[in-house]
């Protein structure tokens, strides 16, 4: 039964069918809970979707966008449930933003949704964020990972300023730098060039990256 619903839900994700995807979860949650649906349906479906997105060329940004919207819908419903048996946003915090001069917001917005869906506390500083502001926020909230998004090469090089800011404040090793965006997929060597500690091929792979970087930062 659960496998059938998981498969149907996964197909709705692929077909960008937001309403039917919500409806099937609403029906499931009537006799269980949205929180259970998150763990038993949403998360496994997103993992499968993420694998497909990373490896196959016919999964589109639009499908990722709708998957994020559906995840957000279900997480919102789960958050409304009382009593909650698990504290939401139990991981993190992390600070993210589009790097200085970059205004391509969609990828960052998807990352925020998928991170929050995976239980991360996220401080999203928006577009065109200068390095100092990202690090100020990370220090203020105790974030061990800072994420910088850039779509094009011309803006990706500004991530170097973030690396410099981390190093000059003596935070190397204790604050890790995640980088992402289309240009890093096209030119993976750019991750090292700008001083990144890691990247993810798409928004759904970011929670796993954050787990790894957070662990590394915790070990110092």
């Amino acid at each position: 039964m659960a496998d059938d619903i998981l498969e149907t839900f996964f197909q709705y994700l692929l077909q960008t069918k937001r309403e039917p995807a919500n409806a099937i979860i609403d029906e499931w949650a009537k006799e269980r809970s949205y929180r259970e649906a998150v763990f038993k349906i949403l998360e496994p479906a997103l993992v499968r979707f993420g694998e497909k997105w990373s490896t196959e060329e016919d999964v589109s940004l639009a499908q990722g966008y709708i998957a994020a919207k559906i995840a957000e819908d279900i997480m919102t419903k789960a958050a409304m449930e009382r009593p909650m048996d698990v504290e939401p946003e139990s991981k993190g915090p992390v600070v993210i933003g589009n790097i200085e001069d970059d205004y391509h917001a969609l990828g960052r917005k998807l990352v925020v949704i998928f991170l929050r869906s995976a239980g991360w506390k996220v401080y999203d500083l928006g577009n065109d964020v200068i390095a100092g502001d990202l690090i100020d926020k990370a220090v203020q909230v105790g974030a061990k990972v800072v994420g910088a998004s850039a779509m094009m090469y011309t803006t990706a090089v500004n991530v170097k300023k973030l690396r410099k800011e981390i190093d000059s404040r003596g935070l190397s090793g204790r604050v890790k730098l995640a980088v992402g965006g289309a240009v890093f997929n096209l030119r993976p060597e750019l991750v090292g060039e700008v001083g990144g500690d890691g990247t993810a091929r798409n928004a759904l792979a970011v929670p796993e990256l954050m787990e790894r970087l957070y662990d590394e930062a915790s070990k110092g």
Partner: peptide, 12 residues
């Protein structure tokens, strides 16, 4: 419209 606004329009 911005990419997210336009995607939303195209899809729904």
């Amino acid at each position: 419209m911005g990419l997210d606004g336009w995607l939303n329009t195209l899809l729904f």
